[in-house]
Amino acid sequence: MAPLLRKAIRLIDGASETAGFLSAWSLFLIGFFITYEVVMRHVFTAPTIWVDEVSRILQVWVVYLAASYVLKHREMVTIEVLLSDPTTLRRRLAETFALAMLFIFAGVAMYYGFQLWLKETLAGHTTDTYLAPPKWLTHAPVWVGSLLLILQGLVELYRVWTEDIPADDILEGAH
């Protein structure tokens, strides 16, 4: 494998790992924020104005950022009854088809997500809430996460056809 390609794959894999790490900690923060809200509301009778909206924004980021991490670790829904051997042509064609569908979906989401994000950012729109954060906070994860998913999909497509399967995936029977 060429050194430049190897670096690109490591960079994309690293970005997916970072996205997964950030998603996991965001879920922890969301749980902490909601617990804080419950205590403030029911114990101190002093509800907050920010917990609901901040939690929702973080949830949107979690969904789109975690997708590339899940793909990298081959944890997407798969049915391996007929295609359990990752080295067969049938399995490679099936995975290529699945990744092609992913590219179509993520490409459309990235394109239109970017258009919406750009429009909202340039217009300076905010949400219609008391907190009023900028709308780009909820629109950015759509195209950022979709772009990262496409990049990780390209890496996985390369792995499908070059047998560059991570050792832990072979041991677990995934891929």
Rank of each mutant, 00 (worst) to 15 (best):
K119P: 06
G113S: 01
V155K: 08
L122F: 10
G107P: 01
Y112W: 02
L154W: 06
T129D: 14
A132M: 11
G113N: 07
D128N: 14
W143K: 01
Q115Y: 05
H125A: 06
D128W: 13
W143N: 00
T121R: 11
V142N: 06
V142A: 02
Q115R: 01
P133S: 12
A123E: 15
A123P: 05
G153C: 12
A109E: 12
L154E: 10
Y130E: 13
W117A: 13
Q152Y: 00
T121D: 13
L116G: 01
L149W: 05
M110P: 03
L157W: 15
T129F: 08
L157I: 04
V142H: 10
G113V: 00
T129Y: 09
Y112H: 06
F114G: 07
L151G: 05
T129Q: 03
L147A: 08
L118R: 12
L151T: 04
Y112A: 01
L149M: 06
W136Q: 09
L131V: 09
L147E: 02
Y112K: 09
Q115A: 06
T138R: 10
L122G: 07
L137H: 11
H139D: 07
Y111H: 10
M110F: 04
P134H: 10
S146P: 01
A140K: 05
H139C: 01
Q115T: 04
I150G: 09
I150T: 07
